[in-house]
Each structure stands twice: as C-alpha cells, then as structure tokens.
Design a protein around this nucleic acid. Structure first.
Lengths: 370, 370
DNA sequence: GTTGAACCTGACTGCGCAGTCAGAAATTCG
DNA sequence: CGAATTTCTGACTGCGCAGTCAGGTTCAAC
C-alpha cells in the first residue's frame, strides 16, 4: 500500500533494495532477513512473516555476487559444448539445462570454437573465470597431444576423455558401444555378410565408441569388418561417401554414425538406382524427429540424452558435495529399453536388382511419439 | 621456481590465491595488482611485469563474485530459450553464445518449461536472480493475458513480443514476414493458383510472421488465401496434415513453416501416390543441413541466425551501456542475400497425374555448402 | 630554478551478504 | 522454583575486489 518511495525518485534507475532496506521496513536486523531468505531455523513466525512481507513489497532480490563472495559457492554449473546446432549436441544441452535447473543451479554455457585445437580447455577456462562450482564436458572431443585438462573444480565428462583430472569421468561409457553393436547385430542378423560403416570424426568420443561397437559386432562372429569410412556427421559427407558405396556391389548394409549421414547416404544410393532397403539396408543413429518420416522411414538407435544428462549431473553434484569418488555402477542400464528403433530402411539382403518389391510399402510403420 | 608452498599444505584443497597473495609475491600493493589485472593506465612496465609473473606463478584468477559486487556489473548476458533441440532454436542459441562471447560477456541460459504458460517470465526471473546485465528473448512466444514482462535490466527480444518493457524489441521484424512472402511468391510465380500453408503454433512469433508473409503474398495479387492449417513444427504434424492435403485435388503447392514439417508432408504425399514436385510443390523453411539431401531436395528459406543474433546483441549491449533507445533501422537487410534456396521440390503445377516425369531427375541440384 | 602537468603508487573504504558469537527470551526438566 | 536447554535475535566481521583520494615521482615547459 504505502509505497516507501525511494529517496531519489528523480534519478533514473533507483538502487536495488538490499537486506538492510528490508530489515528497516520489517523492523528487524539484516541478519534476520538473511535467515528468512535462506530458510534457516530459529526465526519466529512473526519475524518471518514481517520480513517476507517487506521483501515482497520492496521487490527484494538477493544479490548473488555478494552471496557467492561470502559462501565461496557460485551455485552454477558450467557446460562446455560444441558450437553446433546438431540434434545430438543440442538435445544434450537441453537435457543438461533441465537437470541443472531442477537441481537448483544456474546454467552457463561455453561453446568450443570450431576447428580450434585446445578449445575445450579454453571453454573450461572461460567457465572458471566467470565462476562455476563444477563443469560438465558434453560431447567431448580429444585435445591435442593428450593434454590434461586443468581446473580447480570437479569436472565430469559425458563420455570418456583422456587427460581428465582424477575426479571426473562418467557413466555412458559402456552403453554407447553396446548401441553401436546392437545396430550392427541387427543388420548381421538379417543375413547381411558384412556391414559397412560411415563413421564420425574419430576425435569425437561418441564417434569412436559407435565405431568400436560396430567393430566388435563383427569380431564376435569371427567376421573381418570392412574398412570404415570417416565422415563429418553431415548429410553432405553421407552423400559423398554414399556415391562410393553405391559403386561397390558387395555393399548391402550400412550403419551410419548418425541420421543426417544416413539421409545423405540414402539420396546417393537412390540416385545410383539402388533401392533402400531392397538393395541396401541402412541404419542411422540418433532417432531425430524426422527419422520416422524419411523415405524409407529410418531404422535407427534412439539416444538417451535425458538419462545421460541426469547421470552426469548426479555425479557432478556428488563430487561438488565432497564425495571423492562417487560410484556410478549399477545405474548403467542393461538395455532393457531397446534403443534400436526398427523401421523400413532395413531388410534381408536381396542382391538381385530388379526383383519385385516386397510388400513393405504399405505396411504399418512404427513412428516415434515420445 | 621457488614455489611458495601454501601455509597449510596438508589440507585438501588450498585456498585460491587472491590479489593480496599476488601483491605480496610481487612486492606491490593489492591495488596495483587490480590495476594490472584490469589493464588500467598508470602502471609502470616494471610493476606490470612483476605482477603478471606473480599472478602466473600462483595461478591467480580474479574472483568474479567480488568484482561483480563492487562494480554492480555481472558481465553476463542471459538468454531465455525454448527447451527444444530443434534446428532453429538451437542454431540461434549457438549464434547467440558466439556473439556474447566475442563481446566479452558470459552466457547463461534459462530454458522455458514446456507447455507451461508464463514460463518466459519465470525464465527471466531465474536469470535476474543469478545476476545478468541484460536478457535476450530467443524465439519469443506469447505470455498469457498479454502480461508485461518485468525486469530491472534491459531486455531485447528476437522478434516481437507483446508486453515488453519500453527498452526492448528488435530487428528481425520486417524480414521474416518478407521471407514468408518470398517463399509464397515463388510458388505463385510458378503458376500455382493458391498456396496452402502448414503453419506453426500461432503463439510463436516466428510462426505468426511466416503466416503473415504467406497471407500478404496472396492478398497482394488479389487472391484469397486458403485456410491455413496449424501444426506444431514436428514432422509428425506435417505428416498428419499432409494426409488431409493429399485428399484435396485442388492442392498443388504447400508452404511449410519449417523443414521438418515439410519432411512429414512429403512422406504423406508420397504414400498417397502423389509426386513432389510434379503433383504437389513443397517449400520448407530453415534450410536444415538435410534439406538438400531429402528426396526431392527441398526448396526452402535459409535462416539468418548469425545476423539476427548479432543485431540483438548489439542492441542489448548499447542499452546496457546506457543508450535509451538505440535506433536499429538501416541495419535491416534489403533482401539482397536471397534467402530462398530453390531446389527440386518446387515446379509449375502439373495437375494431370500419370504425366511423364520431367527431366529434372538428373539435373544438377544446388547443395548448400555454407 | 620554478611551475605545472603527467605519471605512478598505496592506504583506505564499501559493495551485500552469511558466518560467528554473545546474549535475551522462551521452554523444558529435575 | 532454579537450572539446563532450546529458541530467537542482532552486533560484528570478513569475503575479494575496484573506486576514491592523497601523496610521491618524473618529465616538460617556462
């Protein structure tokens, strides 16, 4: 009601109210205001009520800088991410922000500079300069020369990275390899003799793991995998590599390191007169929203961004809280959620062109809905 | 060399060095250290050198909280974004981070909570609580009841939003309408009588503008536009709406509010036995990386994320610096960069099914490379 | 040599908050 | 009823830094 009109009403922007202002209005001490704001014990209901009313009336907002200064905690998590808008990295970022927010922390991002070595360390440095309690490395890529990351706060990496300080490292290790293996197994189970692989840049951890899963799937059956071909995640690279693969009659099945690459590949195959899946089966990775609506709808591996993000955050928070080495085992899923989404881009090998199309065309096709 | 071993070497984590530590080692006062760190004038080369050496030796990092406390500036820009990994929002976020970083500011993100009204204001509140010097609203959507956004720092919106404080508002207004118009004009110029429109959710500013451009393109020619259909940006909604459109023989051209929707649409048309572009032409929006590799390669409108982001940042920084109403006119491009990328999904109307395919199939097709 | 200006430096202070502690008031217990 | 305990409160302090100011030094100009 009676607005305590600020002393200098004439000035442009009046000073933000601090705890002393609230205390004065409420008739208590600054320390009591602090207690109320931080929900501490030992404040009478009467005082609490008065303070809250005064704070609301003044529009009081605690000053984070001052709080951080006295507590030494910033209440902020930093994330180093790649400067790409690709589905994978972007989804991870969204999941991380959500998890961090729900944990009550602020969220800072430092993107790496594209094509710049050591840019992960630079990202870490920028985060440290602005003040964070912990750092998450999303989509880690290798630093040159196996350099060690340096930081005086806990670091957690979503996926393995060499050179991490002792704290660190994360969950997802095992299952990404498993995912790559499952995709490959699916194709081998269909009867394909070998599965070709369009890999991602091998300085990315995720790309390496998928390749490793693909390799293992072959070796487990005593098959020598064909040489893999390295792309750059883009549809363009999938298209270019696809033109090569289309020329090789031995190629009947391809596992792509992501859905974008698969999109380019399919176009190249089609332009070469090959049919998917009748002549060549294709598996992607990511399950981007459009995957179910490509022609043909793409068999792919659905990523578990939410779960990965939450594991990373849990690990980081426990380290921030002081646990020297939080044990994460057991939380690693056993794969019961079946990340492989089988759609119409995979089928048994055909290998005789011109054969009549199978009836799949009008068959019901699973579309993702999550 | 002679490492000044910290007093309590036994303790786990030793206290981070402050300016007094550096000053002691360098043989100067704390204030001089402050001067060197902030690159102020009036420091002798000798002092500067000593301080820098000492700072490096101790691994000194200025404490942002203390600095923010004394200066009242956080050196941080906050962005409120949608919690989606879609190409558009994610690209904007990447561009914004880059621009903010280059301006020497830190970058905080607050995502909105999906499906929650008032979540933009909540995002703003979260940013204000953690301390930012200014806020950018990326991909603004309407708040319920035309509520005014409240903040005691400058806000800039990437696209118009009702209820913004006087400071605010941005650049892109004009050209997004123009983009929608250009896409539609392209189809009308090809000879289509009308262009159907799969719109985005109309509480999104971007979706409204594109629809408006589509509408204007019709009205300018004295054509009554057909009713638009509202999707939700997803391929799924494009597919569902596509099934309706496929049943209407009048439909020969569709402008989709984004490339994902177009992807779903094309599948629905294809499944209905229609050919793109022979029976129906399709234009998308965004120019996602896969757009050039769909079948057919998609005619679409390329977004100008970098430019938009930079304009928003420039506007925000100038307001932070004190300019009450920075005038942005003139910076609005005149369209000389031709955002419409014409590929193979658009052609003149055919309208007699079963006609021989035109020769486009093998024709060279532009692929984006930027 | 004197005057002034530019240059350089450090003591002191306050930013807004939470930690510490001493003490008052209310409650429980023997 | 007094003693021990719990609850409540505020004075005081320091976190690490940059702003202010006073003083000292150097240099050029008169």
């Amino acid at each position: 009601m009676n607005e305590p009109s600020p002393p200098s009403e004439s000035a442009g922007r009046r000073k933000a109210p601090d705890m002393y202002d609230v205390a004065r209005l409420a008739g208590v001490s600054q320390k009591t205001v602090s207690r109320v704001v931080n929900n501490e014990r030992y404040v009478s209901d009467a005082s609490r009520e008065k303070v809250m009313r005064a704070a609301r009336e003044l529009g009081f907002r605690p000053n984070t800088a001052a709080r951080a200064l006295t507590t030494g905690r910033f209440h902020r998590i930093g994330v180093v991410s790649l400067s790409t808008a690709g589905w994978g990295p972007a989804s991870l970022l969204v999941a991380l922000e959500r998890g961090v927010r729900e944990a009550g922390f602020s969220f800072s991002v430092a993107h790496t500079t594209e094509g710049r070595p050591q840019s992960m360390q630079e990202g870490i440095d920028r985060l440290l300069e602005q003040g964070v309690d912990g750092i998450i490395l999303s989509e880690p890529i290798d630093e040159p020369q196996g350099r060690r990351f340096e930081a005086d706060v806990p670091i957690v990496s979503l996926g393995y990275t060499d050179g991490l300080p002792p704290k660190s490292v994360v969950p997802t290790d095992a299952h990404v390899v498993a995912d790559g293996r499952e995709a490959t197994d699916h194709l081998l189970d269909l009867g394909h003799a070998k599965v070709w692989h369009i890999a991602g840049p091998q300085n990315w951890w995720a790309a390496r793991e998928r390749l490793e899963g693909w390799r293992q799937a072959h070796l487990d059956r005593g098959i020598e995998p064909p040489p893999h071909i390295e792309g750059d995640w883009s549809p363009a690279s999938g298209y270019e590599i696809g033109k090569q693969l289309a020329a090789d009659p031995e190629v009947t099945a391809v596992f792509c390191t992501n859905d974008d690459t698969a999109t380019g590949l399919i176009l190249a195959l089609t332009e070469a007169g090959l049919r998917v899946p009748e002549d060549v089966s294709v598996v992607g990775f990511d399950d981007i929203p459009a995957a179910a609506y490509l022609r043909p709808p793409l068999t792919t591996v659905r990523q578990t961004f939410e779960a990965d993000a939450n594991q990373a955050i849990a690990a980081l928070l426990s380290r921030i809280a002081g646990a020297p080495d939080f044990d994460l085992e057991g939380s690693d899923g056993d794969g019961s959620d079946r990340p492989l989404i089988i759609r119409a881009s995979t089928a048994p090998p055909w290998r005789h062109r011109g054969a009549p199309l199978p009836e799949r065309r009008g068959a019901p096709i699973e579309r993702t809905d999550s």
